[in-house]
Write a protein that binds this DNA or RNA. Structure first.
Length: 554
RNA sequence: UGGCCUAUAGUAUAAUGGUAGUACAACAGAUUUUGGUUCUGUCUGUCUUGGUUCGAAUCCAGGUAGGCCAACCA
C-alpha cells in the first residue's frame, strides 16, 4: 500500500466542495497584473491554480488584472503568457479585467442606485485623514449623504471626463468605524486620464482592485479564488460586494506566499535590480524570475516538482534554495548529456605517448539516461588540458587526484602517473608531466590497477573554446529583505564569474541555444540564448554536489 | 495599543481525538572510470501554561512569538 500523501488545506476544501455537490467542476484563475515579470513565487501560484484543475477536473483562466493603466504594459503580458506556457500549463481563456470595464461600470451604477455607494469630492489626503487608524474609528465624509440622483449624475460625468484626476472618487458606503480598515468606505473608482494598454483612451475612470478582482472572478464563475495571505482582510469586502451586487458567489481562499533563501520575490525590488543594472535584464540568469531561471537552465519539470514539494500552507516560510537545486539536479541528471570541459586549464604532457599520435576513446553520453545514452568518440592525444584544481603539489589528506608520483584515471582513457611539473617565477604550475599505462585503456584495462580518482580532460590540439558563465546566488544573505540595510547592500559581488575561454570537447561546437549538458565533475550547463557557433556561451545552471569541497573544508 | 492570520526537526510539509511521518539539509558508511548518481544507516521536532478526554500536535481558554491591515497599488 502506497501511503497517501496528505492533502493541503486547499485540496481539502475542494474535495469537500466536490463531495457534497457544491460544484460539479472547479474553476480557478491565475490573475497577474501585467506590470512586471513573473518570478518563482508566481510559479508556485501557477502550479497551484492549474494543478488543482488538472487534478480535480475543471479549468483555469489566465486573467490579467489590468486596472491600473499607469504601470501596465503589453510587454509584460507577452512575457507572462510565455512563462505560463513554458511551465507547461494551458489556460482555458485568456481574459482581461479590462474586458469587463463596461460590466463593472454597470455594477457601480447598481450600487449607487441601491444607496450603497457615493461620490466623494475629498482629496486623497482628506480621505486618509478621515479613515482613522487601526485603533481609532474613522469619520464620515461630508459628501457621504448625497442623493442617489446626484451620485448617479456625478458618476456619469466622472466617466465622461468632466473632472480632473484625483478630484472625485466613487466609494462604497459601509461603515467608517468598522474594525476592518478596508470596510471604511473603500474607494471603488478613481479618475485617471491615462492611456490603457488595451482600452486606449476609452476610459478615464478605472476600478480599484477590490472592485475588479472579485467581480471578475464572479463573471467567470470562478469557484475557488486563490490569493496570498495579505488579501485576508479583503475577503470581507470581496464577500460584501458580491452579496450587495447579487452576483455569482466566488469564494476567496488565502495561502502563504513562498519565500526562497538568497533571493527576493518583490516585483518592485526585481525592477530595481534591472533598472539600476545590478543584473542584465529581467532574464538575467541570476534572477529568480521565470525567464531568468529558464535562461539559467532550469527545467519546467524541476520547477513544478519544487512547487509540489514545498506544498502550500498558511504560515510564514523561507524555503531553502538547496531544495530547488536538488530538484533541478535530479531532473538534469536524467536528461543532460555528459561532456568534458576544462574551465581553468593547465597543460598536461604525456611524455611516453608517441609524439603527434592521436586516438579515439569512447565515453558515455549519460549513464543515468533511461536508454543508457550510448557513447561518443573523443579524441585523445599526448597533450591535454586538465583542471588546475585537479593537481596538488603537496596533496591534502584523502586527496584522490593528481599529485607528484600519484596515479589517476583520465576519464574514459588511460591511467597516468605524475612524474613532474614546471612552475613559473610566481610559483604557478605551468605544465604537468606524466607517463601513461598503455595497458590501462578504458574498456581494455589489463593493468590490474585501480585508481581512487578519475579526472576529466580535453585534447589541447582538438579542443573547441567557449565562454562559460558561472552563476552563484544573487544575494549573500539568506533573507535580504529582512536585513537591516537596504537589500541592494547584500548583492553578492561574485554572483557572476565569466570565463572567456574555456576548453571544451570539439563536439560541443554544435551546441544550440537551450541545449543542456553536464560538464563532467563541473555541473550542469545550458547553451545561452546568445550562443553562436562562432562564439559559444554556456551558463552554469547548478554545480554538482561536491563532497570533496565539504571534506576539504574540514 | 483595535481587528485579523499563523505557530510540528536546521528548512518545508503530513498526521483531521488513537504508534509524530516524508522530503531537503547535516552526519556516518557501501557502491562507483564523474569525490556525480545509487543504496544503507544516524541525528534533530509538536511555542508555553492550564483545561476537556481513557487518550490531545489535533478540541477549549490564557499567555508568548511572528505576520498582515491606516495607496485614488495589486
Amino acid at each position: 500500500m502506497a501511503e497517501e500523501k496528505g492533502l493541503n488545506f486547499i485540496e481539502e476544501i475542494v474535495e469537500e466542495d466536490l463531495k457534497n455537490g457544491k460544484y460539479q467542476q472547479i474553476i480557478t484563475r491565475f490573475p497577474p497584473e501585467p506590470n512586471g515579470y513573473l518570478h518563482i513565487g508566481h510559479a508556485s501560484s501557477i502550479c497551484l491554480n492549474f494543478g488543482l484543475t488538472e487534478k480535480y477536473g475543471g479549468y483555469t483562466n489566465l486573467r490579467f488584472d489590468d486596472t491600473n493603466p499607469v504601470t501596465e504594459e503589453t510587454e509584460y503580458v507577452e512575457s507572462i503568457k510565455e512563462d505560463v506556457k513554458w511551465l507547461g500549463f494551458t489556460w482555458k481563456n485568456e481574459l482581461y479585467a479590462s474586458d469587463y470595464f463596461d460590466t463593472l461600470y454597470g455594477f457601480a451604477v447598481d450600487l449607487v442606485k441601491k444607496g450603497l455607494a457615493y461620490i466623494d469630492d475629498s482629496s486623497s489626503e482628506e480621505i486618509a485623514r478621515l479613515k482613522g487608524t487601526p485603533t481609532e474609528p474613522g469619520s464620515n465624509s461630508p459628501y457621504r449623504n448625497r442623493s442617489v440622483e446626484e451620485n448617479l449624475d456625478l458618476f456619469e460625468r466622472m466617466k465622461n471626463g468632466e473632472f480632473k484626476d484625483g478630484s472625485k472618487t466613487l466609494r462604497a458606503k459601509i461603515d467608517m468605524a468598522h474594525s476592518n480598515m478596508l470596510m471604511r468606505d473603500p474607494v471603488l473608482y478613481r479618475i485617471k486620464h491615462a492611456h490603457h494598454h488595451r482600452t486606449g483612451n476609452k476610459w478615464c475612470i478605472y476600478p480599484m482592485y477590490d472592485f475588479a478582482h472579485g467581480q471578475s472572478d464572479s463573471i467567470e464563475e470562478v469557484t475557488h479564488s486563490l490569493c496570498t495571505l495579505e488579501f485576508v482582510p479583503h475577503r470581507e469586502l470581496y464577500n460584501w460586494l458580491i452579496e450587495k451586487l447579487e452576483i455569482y458567489p466566488s469564494r476567496q481562499y488565502e495561502f502563504a506566499r513562498r519565500n526562497l533563501t538568497y533571493t527576493i520575490t518583490s516585483k518592485r525590488k526585481l525592477l530595481q535590480l534591472v533598472n539600476e543594472k545590478y543584473v542584465n535584464g529581467w532574464d538575467d540568469p541570476r534572477m529568480t524570475t521565470i525567464s531568468g531561471m529558464r535562461r539559467r537552465g532550469f527545467t519546467p519539470a524541476s520547477i513544478r516538482d519544487f512547487a509540489s514539494r514545498i506544498g502550500v500552507a498558511k504560515r510564514e516560510n523561507l524555503v531553502s534554495m538547496s531544495l530547488l537545486e536538488h530538484c533541478v539536479r535530479e531532473d538534469l541528471n536524467r536528461i543532460a548529456i555528459r561532456r568534458m570541459a576544462v574551465l581553468d586549464p593547465v597543460k598536461l604532457i604525456i611524455t611516453n605517448y608517441p609524439n603527434g599520435q592521436t586516438e579515439e576513446v569512447l565515453s558515455e553520453n549519460n549513464p543515468e539516461a533511461e536508454d543508457n545514452g550510448g557513447t561518443r568518440p573523443v579524441i585523445f592525444s599526448g597533450e591535454l588540458w586538465i583542471e588546475k584544481e585537479d593537481f596538488m603539489e603537496t596533496p591534502a589528506k584523502k586527496w584522490f587526484r593528481l599529485a607528484p608520483g600519484a596515479l589517476v584515471r583520465l576519464k574514459s582513457a588511460y591511467i597516468i602517473k605524475c612524474e613532474g611539473y614546471n612552475k613559473d617565477s610566481n610559483g604557478n604550475i605551468t605544465e604537468i608531466h606524466c607517463t601513461y599505462l598503455p595497458e590501462s585503456k578504458s574498456g581494455n584495462d589489463v593493468s590490474g590497477i585501480r585508481t581512487k580518482g578519475t579526472i576529466h580532460w580535453v585534447s589541447a590540439a582538438h579542443a573547441a573554446k567557449a565562454e562559460v558563465r558561472l552563476y552563484d546566488r544573487l544575494f549573500s544573505v539568506e533573507d535580504p529583505a529582512a536585513e537591516e540595510k537596504d537589500f541592494l547592500e547584500y548583492v553578492n559581488p561574485g554572483s557572476l564569474q565569466v570565463i572567456p575561454e574555456a576548453y571544451i570537447e570539439a563536439d560541443l561546437g554544435n551546441a544550440k541555444p537551450g541545449d543542456r549538458y553536464q560538464f563532467i565533475r563541473k555541473g550542469y550547463f545550458i547553451a545561452d540564448n546568445d550562443s553562436t557557433p562562432q562564439h559559444l556561451i554556456f551558463n552554469r545552471t547548478v554545480t554538482l554536489k561536491d563532497t570533496w569541497a565539504k571534506e576539504s573544508r574540514k
